[in-house]
Design a protein around this nucleic acid. Sequence first.
DNA 1: CTCCTTGGTTCATTCATTGAACTATTGAGG
DNA 2: CCTCAATAGTTCAATGAATGAACCAAGGAG
Lengths: 174, 174
Amino acid sequence: MALGKNYDGQDCSLARSLELVGERWTMLVVRDALYGVRRYGDFLAHLDIPRAVLSQRLTTLVDAGVLRRHRYQESPPREEYVLTEMGQELWPAALALSSWGERHLSGKPRRIFCHVPCDTRIDGYGMCPACGVRPELAEIEVRPGPGADLLRDDPVSRALRRPHRMLEPLPHTA
Amino acid sequence: MALGKNYDGQDCSLARSLELVGERWTMLVVRDALYGVRRYGDFLAHLDIPRAVLSQRLTTLVDAGVLRRHRYQESPPREEYVLTEMGQELWPAALALSSWGERHLSGKPRRIFCHVPCDTRIDGYGMCPACGVRPELAEIEVRPGPGADLLRDDPVSRALRRPHRMLEPLPHTA
DNA sequence: CTCCTTGGTTCATTCATTGAACTATTGAGG
DNA sequence: CCTCAATAGTTCAATGAATGAACCAAGGAG
């Protein structure tokens, strides 16, 4: 439902992408998933998204193959949502948009992305300026930036106050 | 209004970008503007977007500095909408999303992007594989791809049936 | 004087989002 | 056995945005 009943007339690849990930909240869910958020409750607390919308978005993303639903415990049955390969490939798009916003809309960045082996900040195109390579997600660390928010107090915000590997599940000290 | 009254709690750069360009239709307006669409009527015919929504989006984008409103004739006064530098810098984000959709959602691409000097197709990160550079928009040509739509019959679709420089205004044979 | 073009605005209907309340399953504590 | 807490949802009334059709306005052409 990204663009109403129909993007039919507009089926260029961009329109197709937007039908899926162009809905309200969807890219933020993906961003959190890239950070390693997997649980319903964590998305909920970190995004301040209405529960009904979160459920609908997660289902849509699972159906589309962006997320995989994984039962991490039986009894009581508990599900978590993990990015598929397809979902992980949204990283360049998320980074491009984020980088644009940082240049034109934001003050200081909240989070920065670093290439762990060389400890260098990744550029807006996903390249490591030092190594000249495009690092994989597993080699990238999210770190608090100069504009980091110290006020939020949900599990995700707390975990991301220290450096954290992309995709690495959040610690659950429960 | 991209994410409701509030992305307040979410002001990472991505959320800020989405507040502006994450609304329904907005990225498609930007995409058309990258192709050289400038006139209200052309956006309207090519996107099949409701007039009220188009007006609202154009105004929002002008206010945000993504588009510049330019009076291309007095009497009767006629406006056109041209991408600013800030707007042109959405190209990598649009390309990243488009490329993702092409890999995971589409059949054959409708349009392909080529680096004119070397006549090579640009990759999903905006690089020319032959030259190893990241071409500027003025050096990029949109060409009909293998999945090109031959059915639509609006001025924009017709103009884009042959190769066309990015940002170059559409011919107006009026 | 009338019609056409361009670029809009207005407005009633439909659809999506919101946020609060409720449900369901199970484990732990008393 | 009874109650409470945690997790992951669903339901629903109220609000707000999108849709599409109709209307408006300012020239220009015939």
